[in-house]
């Protein structure tokens, strides 16, 4: 879950940076689908009547970041990728728009990396996730009963418990679990999504649900630092879906592209240099809005 969550973090960071730029340049846009808070489409944009799918790429290799910061033209022969299954779905029409963005930044993947960034006074976001359907409320939507956390470590543990209540509303509860002792979550959770720690817990944390009659042990190695140590955001360019269809080619999973050593899925792909400039899109939208 660590790499997947950091990709989500990077994608939202790029999208928010783009929205700030649109605001600063008085380019009007709508936010679509702000429905349930778990909906992934919450951050989707609509510009000038066209739906926008922002595709973000997270560049984490130090040499690549150095090259990119020195010369942004490094991006021109990176790949504008759209996963083929998404491309073939009917979520976007041919007049809708793909925008391609990049975040250059570092990850703290290993526990030693997290220790180093803490020593340097940098932020961390340590998250342990729950993948079992019962804890996530997927098997049955019912209260998890009393949730009790046991801290196996020698120091009090400051945590945040994140989940959902009966009406699927977000619940975030701070909780301090004393050393080698228990503490109960006050809120009645129907789904337990994550625990967050502010320091790397040196020992295990056992989570007990009175309704499930089960205990889930979170080990020290289960904490993922999902903070992204960003440096630069680039918005490379855009094409309509119809244009992208004409100009892109199929790229098998496992292919090397400039920004990734191996792609994870089958994509449609074209070089970044074949896109249209984002300033042109902004100008068109302003013209559209003033008509």
């Amino acid at each position: 879950p660590g790499p997947r969550l950091r990709k989500i973090v990077a994608g939202v960071a790029v999208e928010l940076a783009l929205r700030r730029w649109l605001d600063a340049n008085q380019v009007p846009y709508d936010l679509l689908g702000a429905t349930a808070f778990t909906e992934r489409d919450k951050y989707d944009l609509r510009l000038g009547g066209r739906r926008v799918d922002l595709k973000s790429f997270f560049i984490t290799d130090r040499d690549d970041i150095t090259a990119l910061r020195h010369d942004p033209g490094w991006l021109l022969d990176a790949a504008a990728l759209v996963p083929e299954d998404q491309f073939n779905s009917h979520k976007l029409e041919d007049g809708d728009v793909y925008v391609f963005g990049f975040l250059a930044g570092l990850e703290a993947r290993q526990q030693a990396d997290t220790r180093r960034v803490l020593d340097a006074g940098q932020p961390v976001e340590l998250v342990a996730t729950f993948v079992d359907d019962d804890w996530l409320g997927r098997a049955q939507w019912r209260s998890l009963g009393t949730l009790t956390l046991h801290n196996d470590g020698p120091l009090p543990l400051e945590l945040e418990v994140g989940g959902q209540g009966r009406d699927r509303e977000a619940i975030v509860e701070p909780l301090v679990v004393p050393a080698e002792a228990r503490a109960a979550v006050a809120a009645r959770l129907y789904a337990l999504l994550y625990l967050r720690a502010f320091q790397p817990p040196p020992a295990g944390v056992d989570v007990r649900s009175s309704a499930l009659h089960r205990t889930h042990s979170v080990l020290p190695s289960d904490w993922h630092n999902i903070w992204v140590y960003g440096m630069d955001v680039f918005i490379a360019g855009w094409l309509t879906k119809g244009e992208f269809r004409e100009r892109s080619r199929r790229l098998p999973a496992g292919s090397r592209v400039k920004q990734y050593p191996r792609t994870q899925t089958v994509n449609r792909s074209l070089p970044i240099r074949d896109l249209r400039p984002i300033t042109e899109l902004a100008r068109r939208i302003k013209d559209f809005a003033s008509r």
């Binding site: 973090v9 960071a13 033209g73 996730t129 490379a236 249209r276 300033t279």
Partner: peptide, 28 residues
């Protein structure tokens, strides 16, 4: 065809990551 001058470089600050982190946790 894009040139390097067409690429839009935007400032980064931690509030971008903070927004992403809060979103990622809720998307679990």
């Amino acid at each position: 065809m894009l040139t390097a001058l067409d690429l839009l470089r935007l400032p980064y600050d931690d509030s971008l990551t903070r927004a992403g982190v809060e979103y990622a946790k809720k998307s679990l």
